[in-house]
Amino acid sequence: MAQPPVPIRCAGRPTLGSLVIPWITLHAGGRYLFGALDKDRRDRALAERRCQVCGQSFDERICLAVRPADVYAGYTAEPGMHPECLAYSVRACPMLSGDATRYRATPASSGLPGVAEEGHGPRAGRPADAFDAWWITPSSYCVKTDPEHPGQLLGIDLDVPVLRKRPIRPAAGLDLDSLFALARQALGLEDTASSCPYQPDGSPQPHNTAKESD
């Protein structure tokens, strides 16, 4: 299968197998781990308004990859993307493209010492969620924090004006949590109280020694 063209914004990013390595991808054990997030970079992307793919600041539009469960929670835990970086991810990421039908049963970082794996459990081995693309403006960009731990970033607030919504992929199978969230959304009962750095499907992780300093 032909690889999608790399956005100009990502021209300086390291690649693996002709695929751009997103800025928030974890680098551990001498290799990049597609499907695992670097928590520090994820938090920096949220706080500094950086794109999770290219790592650059946003312009006039910010795109979010949103699941029904995110709508129910009131925020998406993953950072936003430039429109062109989202378009690239929709073709390059198995989860967003629809090629992956389930989340990984074990974390991409499984077995690596000193690597946090929290947050993987709820999705582990479950059918892939539906994803929609939301376009928002920088003025609508707001990061939510944990009320009990103010220094902990939850993600991008979804209770904001949305310029446009477009489906990215349907759910891969029956998911009661997602169906419940969709029902609440249809009834207007959302609780206003999260894209993918590729390879979330459990396939073998490619080894590499690429490094970066940014």
Results as ranks from 00 to 15, higher is better:
53 V>R: 01
157 D>S: 05
162 V>M: 02
175 D>M: 03
101 T>Q: 14
123 R>A: 12
43 D>R: 12
35 G>T: 03
203 S>D: 09
75 Y>V: 00
186 A>I: 12
173 G>V: 06
208 N>L: 09
207 H>P: 09
97 S>R: 13
196 C>N: 07
38 D>A: 13
173 G>M: 10
91 R>E: 14
19 L>N: 10
159 D>G: 15
188 G>P: 03
49 R>E: 10
177 D>I: 12
212 E>P: 06
17 G>Q: 11
143 V>H: 02
207 H>L: 15
111 G>C: 00
143 V>W: 03
197 P>S: 01
173 G>W: 12
155 G>W: 03
90 V>M: 14
67 R>V: 07
14 P>D: 08
179 L>Q: 14
166 R>K: 13
21 I>T: 05
195 S>Q: 10
31 R>M: 06
42 R>S: 06
73 A>D: 06
42 R>T: 03
92 A>P: 05
201 D>G: 01
166 R>V: 14
152 Q>H: 13
45 A>G: 01
178 S>Q: 15
172 A>E: 05
41 R>V: 00
1 M>T: 14
90 V>G: 04
127 P>A: 01
169 R>T: 15
86 L>M: 15
58 F>R: 01
194 S>W: 04
92 A>Q: 02
197 P>V: 12
213 S>G: 02
53 V>N: 10
16 L>D: 11
94 P>S: 14
105 A>P: 06
188 G>V: 12
51 C>S: 07
146 D>P: 05
151 G>N: 08
63 C>M: 15
115 V>G: 02
53 V>L: 15
178 S>W: 01
182 L>V: 12
6 V>F: 00
180 F>R: 15
56 Q>E: 13
25 T>G: 06
49 R>P: 00
5 P>C: 12
50 R>E: 02
9 R>S: 08
174 L>H: 11
188 G>H: 09
21 I>N: 00
157 D>I: 10
188 G>A: 09
95 M>K: 12
200 P>C: 13
202 G>F: 05
157 D>L: 10
160 V>W: 02
36 A>S: 07
1 M>F: 13
171 A>F: 02
134 W>G: 00
12 G>L: 13
117 E>D: 08
120 H>S: 09
101 T>N: 11
204 P>C: 03
21 I>S: 02
210 A>I: 14
108 A>F: 07
184 R>A: 15
119 G>F: 02
176 L>D: 02
161 P>G: 11
10 C>D: 03
132 D>E: 15
187 L>V: 06
76 T>N: 12
137 T>S: 03
67 R>D: 00
197 P>T: 04
106 T>D: 05
165 K>H: 08
78 E>H: 11
138 P>Y: 04
98 G>W: 00
107 P>V: 10
95 M>F: 11
68 P>E: 00
117 E>H: 06
144 K>P: 02
167 P>Y: 04
161 P>M: 11
26 L>S: 02
115 V>W: 05
207 H>M: 14
184 R>D: 07
33 L>F: 01
87 A>L: 10
62 I>M: 04
1 M>H: 14
192 T>E: 00
174 L>Q: 09
144 K>I: 09
